[in-house]
């Protein structure tokens, strides 16, 4: 918007204005096409969940539900104890998100602002953990959880994921991007590390923190292998395992898994919509204040 306004002032003759309109139409057409491509699978999941299961096999597939059968949403809860799974996923994902954000902020601040001997080496070690795939640490983590007696518990589901090298890296970059002058000004005002972190660094890094929160929540919510490994009772299982039990071979039940997927993705969508505001507000306020 801002750029457009500036350009409108500078360029005022009509032909270039028309060219600009044409460019904008092309832009929107391309963006609409790309958005449709990204949204189509999500949209079809919704369509498949609304219509009777066997309709998913109709060829050619209609883009609108041929008939609407909402009873499947009730059946999803009948077949698997999805309420409990959703609750468990929510508790686990929120705990992991809060944990990751807090630990990342603290670690990132140290790496960005507090010089100490061997800092780069320690940070390099942090980054190195990023190249180790989850599968490699799976067994070691399992052994730890077993010896702590944390199998089949919220602790076992959350504690191994409370710290993240990626989040630390992301926030360190954000903190380092804050102008040195602000740091000095805060110092003059008598702020220590915590004061500066709380009143200056965190508010300015809000877009990054919002991005990290969404990302952490998404990963925690979508976990499958780990919760499957360490939980045994329905009272501790998460939603992705519940979804697995909905994968029916009956064509008439094909809509079960789609309905389950829709239900399981609702929190993710809610979160994105909620945080979208934050992300944009954070970005624009940063741009104006400089």
């Amino acid at each position: 918007m801002a750029v457009d306004t500036v350009r409108a002032h500078v360029v005022s003759n009509r032909s270039s204005g028309r060219r600009r309109t044409a460019g904008r139409v092309l832009n929107y057409a391309l963006l609409t096409g790309a958005a449709a491509l990204v949204l189509l699978p999500i949209y079809m999941t919704l369509v498949f969940s609304l219509q009777p299961g066997a309709e998913a096999l109709r060829f050619p597939q209609s883009l609108l539900p041929t008939s609407v059968d909402l009873s499947v949403f009730a059946r999803v809860f009948e077949v698997s104890g999805l309420w409990r799974y959703l609750l468990n996923s929510a508790v686990v994902a929120v705990a992991i998100t809060i944990g990751q954000v807090v630990t990342s902020i603290m670690a990132a601040y140290v790496f960005a602002e507090i010089p100490f001997r061997g800092r780069n080496l320690v940070f390099g070690g942090f980054m190195a953990t990023l190249i180790v795939p989850t599968e490699v640490t799976l067994i070691a983590n399992y052994d730890t959880i077993v010896s702590l007696g944390w199998l089949d518990s919220y602790r076992g589901l959350t504690v191994p994921f409370l710290a993240t090298a990626f989040g630390t890296f992301l926030l360190r970059q954000a903190f380092m991007g804050i102008p040195r002058d602000l740091r000095d000004a805060a110092n003059l005002d008598g702020y220590g590390h915590l004061g500066y972190l709380w009143t200056v660094a965190i508010p300015l890094a809000r877009p990054s923190i919002a991005a990290l929160s969404v990302f952490s929540f998404l990963l925690a919510w979508n976990q499958y292998l780990w919760p499957l490994l360490i939980t045994n009772s329905d009272s501790n299982r998460t939603v992705q395992i519940g979804l697995r039990s909905l994968a029916s071979a009956n064509v008439t039940d094909f809509n079960l898994i789609f309905a389950g997927t829709v239900i399981a993705s609702l929190p993710i969508f809610a979160l994105l919509i909620l945080f979208q505001k934050h992300l944009i507000r954070g970005l624009t306020s940063g741009a104006v204040k400089g």
Binding site: I139, Y224, L225, L243, R244, A247, I257
Partner: peptide, 20 residues
């Protein structure tokens, strides 16, 4: 047509896990 989140990933890790 009948899709399940990340089936390929799940299958792959299952194979890896069995191996390991």
């Amino acid at each position: 047509i009948r899709h399940f989140p990340r089936p390929r990933f799940v299958r792959l890790t299952a194979v890896l896990a069995v191996g390991a």
